[in-house]
Design a protein around this nucleic acid. Sequence first.
DNA 1: ATGCTGACAGGAG
DNA 2: ACTCCTGCCAGCA
Length: 116
Amino acid sequence: MLEPDIRPESDFRERVWAFVRSVPPGKVVTYGQVAAMLGYPFAARAVGSVLHHTPTHAKVPCQRVVNRWGRLAPTYGDGGAEQHRMELLADGVEVRPDFTVDLKIYQWWPEITSEG
DNA sequence: ATGCTGACAGGAG
DNA sequence: ACTCCTGCCAGCA
């Protein structure tokens, strides 16, 4: 597990990209989860907006970000959910014909509250 | 600074 | 599990 540059002095977008890049292949996270990790439990919408504006040179695996129900992005890149599914399959994530992912299997957590 | 938009999330039927 | 309305936040004109 790497340590992303999730710093408050950085811009919101940079924090989002940094966190998303910390997501390992074969795993996915929800917009709300990312937002919560950044300190904004209700900024899920902002996270989605940021990812939508994510430049190609950002090298960000936005494919590993789905909604709370594991739903893929309907307007992902130019191919929409179609392309999103391809990217997920490439990472080893199985996507249902409904364009949904089983979060209980692929959802990833950066830090588990296992302090004991 | 104000108003509108969007790859969200939660509650109710 | 899906649909409709509401609340939150960041980005852009």
